[in-house]
Each structure stands twice: as structure tokens, then as C-alpha cells.
């Protein structure tokens, strides 16, 4: 069944869509750790998934407004009112490391993005 449907959508491909350089950048950008096997298999799986998007070429998208929200809501805002917060204990209750009421991480460079 999976194969029949894959064939229907022509998504099996050997064509590389994402360059090796972009793939490496992607791993870094997403802060993920990939095994050597995953580096290979995920790369080709991403290429397959992107191949699907070629069907967009069949549509005329000129002058089509992008849709971000399926509903028609607008101007949903809060009044500027203070409500109760977590206690410090609640805030820190799942922290891996804490110190004197602070969350703690091993030292990071002071340079900030």
C-alpha cells in the first residue's frame, strides 16, 4: 500500500535536492546530533520529501495571497492586567540544574546572538 501510494505521487527519487553544504548547515542550525547512518538516510529522505513539492509547479500561484491562519480572527489582544505567576519552586520544578533560584547551564560565551 505504501509503495502504491508513493508511486502515485512519484516521490521516490535519487535526485539530490539539498546540497551537502546546505545539509551540513541544517544540522548545525537545528542543533541536532545525527549518526553517520542518519546523515545518509535522512538526507535522501529529505530530498524525497522536497521532490513532492514539484506538484506546486502545476498551479498558477501568481496573485495568490499566502494563507497563514485558517480562521478569520484578527485583533485578539489582552488587556494590560497582571495575573498570578508560578512560584519560584514551580518555575524551577523541572530544571536539570538550578542555583539560588536561577536556572543553571554550563558556562556559555558572553557573546550573544
Amino acid at each position: 500500500m505504501i509503495k502504491i501510494l508513493s508511486d502515485k505521487l512519484h516521490i521516490m527519487t535519487t535526485k539530490q535536492v539539498i546540497t551537502d553544504a546546505d545539509f551540513a548547515k541544517l544540522v548545525k542550525m537545528t542543533k541536532l546530533t545525527l549518526s553517520d547512518e542518519e546523515k545518509v538516510s535522512i538526507h535522501s529522505q529529505l530530498d524525497e520529501a522536497l521532490k513532492e513539492v514539484e506538484v506546486f509547479d502545476e498551479l498558477d500561484l501568481k496573485n495568490v495571497v499566502p494563507l497563514s491562519h485558517p480562521g478569520s480572527l484578527q485583533n485578539i489582544m489582552r488587556e494590560d492586567v497582571v495575573i498570578d505567576s508560578f512560584t519560584q519552586d514551580e518555575a524551577l520544578s523541572n530544571a536539570n540544574a538550578k542555583h539560588n533560584g536561577f536556572f543553571m547551564v554550563s558556562g556559555v560565551l558572553e557573546d550573544q546572538t
Binding site: L34, E38, L46, A49, L61, P66, L67
Partner: peptide, 28 residues
């Protein structure tokens, strides 16, 4: 991992228009 990487690619600079923006148009 697969999903995070594909999504990041579709949003990354240089590819946003070809993937994410077009997908929003198709969604319309």
C-alpha cells in the same frame, strides 16, 4: 530529526519563497 530539518530548510533564507511561501499560497 527528519521533520525539524525539513521544516528548517523550507524556512531558511534562499528557500523560503520556493517552499514555505508557495505552500501558504497553495493552502489558500
Amino acid at each position: 530529526k527528519r521533520r525539524v530539518m525539513l521544516g528548517s530548510y523550507a524556512l531558511s533564507s534562499g528557500y523560503y519563497d520556493a517552499y514555505y511561501k508557495r505552500a501558504q499560497q497553495v493552502r489558500m
